[in-house]
Design a protein around this nucleic acid. Structure first.
Length: 112
DNA sequence: CGGGTGACTCGAC
DNA sequence: CGTCGAGCCACCC
């Protein structure tokens, strides 16, 4: 596993419950602005990783559950999000602007 | 090496 | 936030 993938999983695990971010945001944070599709691919392989990765907190830039079909059940991803307090209607996160978790903004405050 | 694929994104309309 | 087209890059034949 490349170091880039370790960073992807590392960032995803830092997403707090009740929040969500986008593939592109993670890609930019790990230094691959054009690697959003790789983040999706990494999530596809996250089950092979030893540590738990909350892939349900990663959606596309519009807050849509684009990866729900890759979960064990039909609405597993939505139920996971709703169990954390995120409202999901029609495969789309409600109030995504409030739920959105920006790695740069949130993590910079800590690292500064 | 080349072509197909995808849990993406951007710009246009 | 609908669609379409193009760009993107790791992975798998």
């Amino acid at each position: 596993m490349s170091d880039l993938y370790s960073r992807i999983y590392g960032v995803v695990r830092l997403i707090p419950a009740g929040r969500a971010t986008s593939y592109g945001a993670i890609a930019r944070y790990i230094g691959s602005p054009r690697g959003s599709r790789m983040v999706g691919w990494a999530m596809n392989q996250c089950h092979a990783h030893k540590e738990y990765t909350p892939a349900h907190r990663v959606v596309n830039r519009l807050g849509m559950l684009s990866g729900k079909h890759h979960f064990p059940g039909e609405n597993v991803m939505q139920e996971l999000l709703e169990s954390e307090g995120i409202m999901v209607v029609n495969d789309q996160i409600q109030n995504f602007d409030q739920v959105f978790w920006d790695p740069f903004k949130e993590l910079d405050e800590i690292s500064i």
